[in-house]
Every structure is written in C-alpha cells, then in structure tokens.
C-alpha cells in the first residue's frame, strides 16, 4: 500500500473546542509527577503571570492526539492504524496552555515519505483559542510499518 502524496498540504476542518479544566491539568501533572505548584495552585500560577494553573509542556497531546484521529481515520487517506507507531513528536509554544483555555485544533498533513518499506506521515496541528490566539503548534510523525 502506498499513501497518496496528493494529501500533502491538505488541512482539515477545525475540531470542536476543548475546554481545558483546572482539575484535568492537576490530574495530568500528578500522573507525570510534576509537582511544581504552578501546575496545581492558581495562586502560584498567577505569581508567574498566568491566569490559572499552567499545563506541563506535553499536556497538549491530550487534545492533539485526539484531533489527529481526523487524519488517521480519514478513509480517503487510508492509514492502517494497526501498523502505526509514534515516531516523532514536537511542540512549539507561543505560550503555555492554562486552565480556562478553550482550544481548537486545525490539522494538516505536512509530509508523506517512504523508506525501507515503511511510510512516514507528518501531521501538523495548530492549536489556538476559540478567539484565534495561537497557543501551540504540534507535529507528530507516524510510522506506518510495511507489511512483512
């Protein structure tokens, strides 16, 4: 199977807004052992100039991985998810995600390559507030393993 190169550059409709909750940030921070008070205590976050608790750097994956299903499950693109491995992940932040953010993801397919019988799909997700303020850009490279 070979993925259709014409999908490179294709973007998808914005996802439904994701409401970033204070308890979700606390839960995520606790799960990764991030004990800094700014992840848990709004007063500590405000002391750093943020309106509410600050999410750890990889928190946006909670939204972007879900948003990426738009592409992974796009029947026209035809990725076999049972063969997918997470290859690379990158985040470029305009500012940290904070509790109270209402975030929208816009997905695009940035690159499709193949090498050694495997295919590589790089997706880019622009995460903005519902007001259009940029927050973070996420890139995910998926490895679609070739059939042995």
């Amino acid at each position: 199977m070979s993925l259709d190169q014409s999908f490179v550059g294709r973007s998808y409709p914005p996802t439904a807004p994701y409401q970033v909750g204070r308890e979700k940030i606390r839960e995520f921070a606790t799960a990764i052992g991030a004990a800094d008070p700014a992840h848990h205590d709004p007063v500590a976050a405000r002391a750093l100039g943020h309106p509410d608790v600050v999410a750890p750097p990889t928190f946006p994956i909670v939204l972007t991985m879900a948003a990426n299903r738009q592409m992974i499950e796009d029947p026209a693109l035809g990725i076999d998810y049972s063969r997918v491995v997470h290859g690379d992940q990158r985040f470029a932040y305009t500012r940290p995600v904070v509790a109270g953010d209402e975030l929208v993801c816009v997905n695009a397919i940035e690159e499709i390559t193949s090498r050694g019988g495997h295919e590589f799909v790089t997706t880019r997700t622009e995460v903005t507030t519902t007001a259009g303020e940029p927050v973070v850009t996420a890139w995910m490279k998926l490895v679609v393993r070739g059939e042995a």
């Binding site: 991030a34 750093l48 750890p56 290859g87 690379d88 992940q89 470029a92 940290p96």
Partner: peptide, 24 residues
C-alpha cells in the same frame, strides 16, 4: 513527559519551554 519534567527543572520554571521535540 518525564523528560519534559527534567527540562523544566533545569530551566527552573514550569513555563519556560518554548520548543520541545523528540524521536522515539
């Protein structure tokens, strides 16, 4: 995420990261 914790610890601030990427 754990490596991200190491990075924010080195940076000395939970909100200091402006770019972060890895290959698994």
């Amino acid at each position: 995420a754990l490596v991200g914790r190491a990075v924010t610890t080195w940076a000395g601030a939970p909100d200091a990261v402006v770019d972060y990427g890895v290959r698994f």
